[in-house]
Design a protein around this nucleic acid. Structure first.
Lengths: 145, 145
DNA sequence: TACAATTCGATTGTACTCAATTAAATTGAG
DNA sequence: CTCAATTTAATTGAGTACAATCGAATTGTA
């Protein structure tokens, strides 16, 4: 086409489908997450805690690529729901330690339905999913495999 | 591992790296978009208008996967900046027609630097980029190629 | 040991993002 | 024609995101 503006066409962006796709899939999570009263961001936060039981805000932020501006109010909400506790580290009071409660841990069993239900929504064959996964983690600078 | 909770591990999600990657790349756009005083969402909106000159909110929303709750305030901001006009369709007053202004069109030349600068940031070989693009559009339900 | 630099979380302000609701305009069945 | 159903934006409210700034705690160094 010899169009000097071709690079500015929405069709030629790689970030746009990434951005749109991310939001569309998160939207598909909503009905399932509603059942356990979690938002998507709260859900991935709980995922970290289901694995680790305890983590400070900084390390959690690094895992989720989120900063304290997002995490502080979110963690306060999880605390209100009784899913986590928040307390300063005795060794270094700058650190806030987030710990999962029994109630938070119990939610894990009910949450098992979520990835199960989502698997039926996202129609991507295993090879494509693996390829997508690999490329995304490379882009994130966390090479896998 | 035989872990019944494996599906709940952050590492095993496909949506999480999509979500994180999208935000990380948008963050990389910021310094370049700051130079032309646009946010990422405003930028992709302008992209549609650089191609089409004029579009109503509904069609714009379908292209960007955004609804009026996001677009209405965003378009008002673009109008304040003098980049677009907003007026009801005479044929059907329910439709709001967004039209690019001369000033908005002029921004296109300055915006050319953005994809150019970004290309140097995202290190993905052409084959991977093409594969990523294809998978994402399939997930979006807009098959290409 | 002072004390400047650094680290960490909280706060603030701007800008989305989206579900749900509303209101105006249009369309379509009777 | 008439009024119920539909379409379209706008509004509202809750929840992120993130840059910038702040203040308390800790660390490194003279």
């Amino acid at each position: 086409m010899n169009d000097k503006y071709a690079a500015l066409r929405l069709d030629n962006q790689i970030c746009f489908p990434l951005y749109a796709c991310s939001r569309e899939i998160i939207k598909q999570y909503k009905p399932f997450l509603d059942k356990i009263d979690l938002t998507y961001t709260q859900y991935i936060t709980m995922m970290v805690l289901w694995e680790r039981r305890s983590i400070n805000v900084k390390d959690l932020g690094e895992k989720l690529f989120l900063d304290s501006g997002t995490l502080t109010p979110l963690l306060k909400k999880l605390e209100e729901k009784g899913l986590v506790t928040r307390e300063r580290s005795k060794a270094d009071e700058r650190n806030l330690i987030v710990t999962i409660t029994e109630r938070g841990d119990a939610l894990k069993d009910r949450a098992l339905d979520v990835p199960c239900a989502m698997a039926k929504c996202v129609t991507l064959d295993p090879a494509e999913a693996a390829e997508l996964y690999r490329i995304l983690y490379r882009l994130l600078g966390r090479d896998v495999g």
